[in-house]
């Protein structure tokens, strides 16, 4: 069937999508299944909570346009399936990611202990300068909390990650954490640019062993 939606492959989301962004980042969402990656993205996009989202199978993709500090940012958000199925794909995306959002569920100790596993995946697959945001989701379920905020903070400090607790259900810290990630991504990008500008200065030896 011909549909309005399908005909032009119009990017999902706001009309701003057609505007040229100043900066464009690939952000990959990882973490155990059921920690709320898809719900978080749904909140980010539609600003509501949908408790009936089905388990992600394969890889989903959205584009989100945000204006931060008077600059237009386009985020390419890649939502991965929490359960390992087709590992080589996720690996491939680690390599391309400018940022990774690593999510756990504060009501599930297991999801938190798996953070280390995911970190090792990132370390193995992603570029060195990748910006990592650690997110403890589901703060609305305070009564069921199993992972104290301190634990999350400690882990983030240990691995030098940006850290937030949030709730896709209530909206708490959803936008705030993304804005912080965007600023961090911008800083990293600027650093890289500066590096790139500095590099050509020393005489270029192709087989130099000085570094």
């Amino acid at each position: 069937a011909v549909t309005v939606a399908g005909a032009g492959a119009a990017p999902r989301g706001s009309p701003e999508a057609s505007l040229d962004p100043d900066h464009l980042y690939n952000v990959l969402f990882v973490g155990d299944s059921h920690v709320g990656k898809t719900s978080f993205l749904y909140r980010l996009h539609a600003d509501t909570f949908n408790p009936h989202l089905t388990a992600t199978v394969g890889l989903d993709y959205q584009v989100k346009n945000v204006v931060v500090d008077n600059k237009r940012f386009a985020l390419r958000l890649w939502d991965s399936a929490g359960q390992e199925r087709y590992h080589s794909i996720t690996k491939q995306f680690f390599r391309k990611a400018d940022g990774v959002v690593l999510m756990y569920d504060i009501t599930s100790e297991y999801s938190f202990s798996d953070v280390r596993y995911w970190l090792s995946c990132i370390q193995e697959g992603a570029e060195d300068g990748v910006a990592i945001l650690l997110l403890g989701n589901k703060t609305d379920c305070a009564a069921a909390r199993q992972v104290p905020t301190k634990e999350g903070e400690r882990l983030a400090e240990e691995h030098q990650l940006m850290f937030f607790e949030c709730s896709a259900a209530s909206g708490h810290n959803v936008f705030e954490s993304m804005v912080s990630l965007i600023r961090l991504l911008k800083v990293r990008e600027d650093e890289l640019k500066n590096k790139a500008e500095e590099v050509p200065k020393p005489p270029q030896k192709k087989k130099g062993c000085c570094w």
């Binding site: 069937a1 011909v2 549909t3 309005v4 939606a5 005909a7 999902r12 989301g13 706001s14 009309p15 749904y42 996009h45 539609a46 600003d47 509501t48 949908n50 009936h52 989202l53 089905t54």
Partner: peptide, 24 residues
């Protein structure tokens, strides 16, 4: 399926658009 639909509706509310399935 209504979850897909919810996704679509929510998006549409935000963007102020609607859609008609021209195939129908």
């Amino acid at each position: 399926r209504w979850d897909e639909q919810q996704k679509v509706f929510a998006l549409e509310q935000v963007c102020g658009v609607f859609r008609v399935d021209l195939g129908q």
